[in-house]
Design a binder for these strands. Structure first.
Lengths: 147, 147
DNA sequence: AAAAAATAAATCGCATACGATATAATTTGC
DNA sequence: GCAAATTATATCGTATGCGATTTATTTTTT
């Protein structure tokens, strides 16, 4: 035990978080390629599949992303024909994103993705629930700092 | 409960993993800026602070990264004067990375980083240990697929 | 030992993420 | 009612990460 122990890779919590996150994105890739989506595009679509109309601002809040990531990404989803992007009529500062018909249909092709990913993670129900709770605890605590 | 439940954002385990990982990288940024390191560069330095000489291959295995990420990153660390990069004499396929004197000294300036980050995460010891174990379980199970 | 296979890096093209800054639209304060 | 402050996007520059491919080197096979 010396003053450098905190700098050992094996004592980091952040490193496995970072690595697991990368790992999962890698696992998603072949599944999402079939839908012509990246992982970030996929979570945007997930929001829209639940709520057909959102502003860029709302998306950012829910996904912890900002315009520097979202603006270009939404343009790409628009280019693919999955969403339409327009200014809000009553307040032109807002960008409103809505699902196109193609985007709505994509939902049916996406239903197989979550179970496929679940297989690659392979946690017990208890572990998954606990992990879920801890992660959201961390997110909740840091929520304010970034808006 | 319908067939689309699996596609709800709130039912994803991957999304909070991804978001927490991004969050942590954001929290590291101001701390690491002072050391002129990015997060990925920082974990490479952590490996080297424990083991003064490693090959790019070994680094990739330990950090779950490949040459497409590492080659350029190591060049940057070399440009900053923190490491030196050279071909292995006995087998020129390998790239060997060693700490420079500057790189060694950086370790003393880095000791404050882990406790600062720990504050922003704010988990109990039990939670941290449990989280750690689950994450490494996931990493272990997926280790083989990517080398 | 020459050809073939294997291995480790390097390179390419693409899509994030980030802070910082700029722009455009609306609201607020006086 | 108009200048100032606020708000929501857009833009810029930098650094990853990824799969796919290429290059360089070594080992294996015949």
């Amino acid at each position: 035990m010396d003053k450098y122990d905190g700098l050992k890779l094996e004592n980091q919590l952040c490193f496995p978080l970072y690595s697991v996150s990368n790992l999962i994105t890698r696992n998603y890739k072949p599944l999402l390629d079939a839908l012509d989506l990246t992982y970030t595009q996929y979570i945007v679509m997930m929001v829209l599949w639940e709520k057909e109309r959102v502003t860029e601002k709302q998306l950012g809040k829910q996904l912890f992303l900002k315009s520097n990531t979202l603006t270009l990404l939404l343009q790409k989803l628009s280019d693919k024909g999955y969403v339409s992007v327009a200014k809000d009529e009553s307040d032109a500062r807002y960008v409103v994103i809505t699902l196109t018909e193609t985007g709505k249909k994509l939902k049916d092709r996406a239903v197989d993705v979550p179970p496929s990913i679940a297989k690659t993670i392979n946690l017990s129900a208890d572990e998954a629930v606990y992990l879920y709770k801890i992660l959201y605890k961390i997110l909740e605590e840091n929520k304010d700092e970034k808006v």
